[in-house]
Simulated assay, not measured.
Amino acid sequence: MMQKTITFKNAKISFSDVGKGTAVVLIHGFLENSTMWNTIKPKLSKRNRVVTIDLLGHGKSDCLGYVHTIELFSEAIEAVLKHLKLRKYILVGHSLGGYVSLQLAKNNPSKIKGLCLLNSTSNEDSEERKKLRFRANKMIQSNFTNMVRMSFVNLFSEANRKTFKTEINAALQEALQTPIQGYMAANEGMRIRKNSSAVLVENSFKKLIITGKKDPVLDLETSLQEAKKTNTKIVFLNGGHMSHIENKEELITALKAFIKFC
Rank of each mutant, 00 (worst) to 15 (best):
M1W: 03
M2L: 02
A11F: 01
I13K: 05
V18I: 03
A23V: 06
G29A: 10
N38A: 10
T39E: 07
L44R: 06
S45P: 05
R47M: 14
T52N: 11
L64R: 06
T69E: 06
I70R: 04
S74G: 03
E75I: 01
I77R: 00
V80A: 01
L81C: 03
L84I: 02
R87A: 12
R87T: 14
V92E: 00
L104Y: 03
S110A: 14
E124V: 12
E128T: 10
K130S: 11
R133L: 13
R135W: 11
Q141S: 05
T145V: 14
F152P: 00
A159N: 15
F164W: 09
N169D: 14
A171G: 11
Q177F: 13
Q181G: 00
N187E: 10
N187P: 03
K194I: 02
N195G: 07
S196N: 14
S197I: 11
V199H: 05
S223R: 15
E226M: 15
K229Q: 14
N231F: 15
K233Q: 13
L237E: 01
G239D: 09
M242Y: 03
H244R: 01
E246F: 11
N247K: 00
A254H: 12
A254C: 04
K256T: 06
K256Y: 01
C262V: 11
